[in-house]
């Protein structure tokens, strides 16, 4: 069995060694702006004027258009490619979402999915804001599920803007696992 591109391969001892530590920091690829807000609303058929109309946002007490609070996650994702990165080849594994912890923590697993999420929102997302996501591994719980055997990795992501304000704190459980048919006997 080897790393198939669904997360960094390693032993459970290596996973445990990172418990309580900052796993990494990601800088959002894009600042908050109208185009990305519109595309995000479009996919959800979400019509709310504080996200699209400056005067409506001001009437609601904001300085200008605000992005939906749950867009903090989107604005914390780093680029999938940036200048200087190598060109992707057909034989390369698929690129994973560019946020730390989920795939950067070594574990003897080849697949993963998110299970439980808690989020507390803070400062609003204003046009021009640039987010940074600082991730910490705060829990490792081994478990066997219907899809396979592995562990829940609990991460704490703190999203801050360029003014140092916290816009969201997320606690997320990710189940990293090996499917039953692939599990070592």
């Amino acid at each position: 069995m080897s790393n198939s591109g669904w997360g960094k391969w390693g032993s459970w001892e290596e996973t445990q060694a990172l418990l309580g530590k900052i796993i990494g920091v990601s800088h959002g690829a894009d600042a908050v702006e109208k185009g990305s807000i519109r595309r995000w609303l479009e996919a959800k058929e979400f019509d709310c004027p504080i996200h699209t109309d400056s005067s409506a946002a001001k009437d609601a007490g904001f300085p200008d258009i605000v992005a939906p609070a749950t867009m903090a996650f989107t604005y914390g994702v780093g680029p999938y490619w940036k200048p200087g990165d190598p060109q992707q080849q057909l034989e390369d594994p698929a690129k994973q979402i560019n946020i730390p912890a989920i795939f950067d923590v070594p574990a003897p697993c080849i697949l993963s999915f998110a299970t439980s999420v808690d989020v507390e929102f803070g400062a609003p997302l204003l046009l021009g804001d640039q987010l940074t996501n600082t991730s910490k591994l705060v829990g490792v719980t081994h478990k066997t599920m219907s899809v396979g055997k592995g562990a829940f990795l609990r991460q704490q992501d703190t999203y801050t803007n360029q003014r140092g304000e916290t816009v969201a704190i997320v606690h997320m459980d990710i189940f990293r696992f090996v499917p039953h048919e692939d599990a070592p006997i």
Partner: peptide, 8 residues
């Protein structure tokens, strides 16, 4: 594409 989680 909109939310940037491009996991397969």
């Amino acid at each position: 594409g909109a939310n940037r989680d491009l996991s397969l």
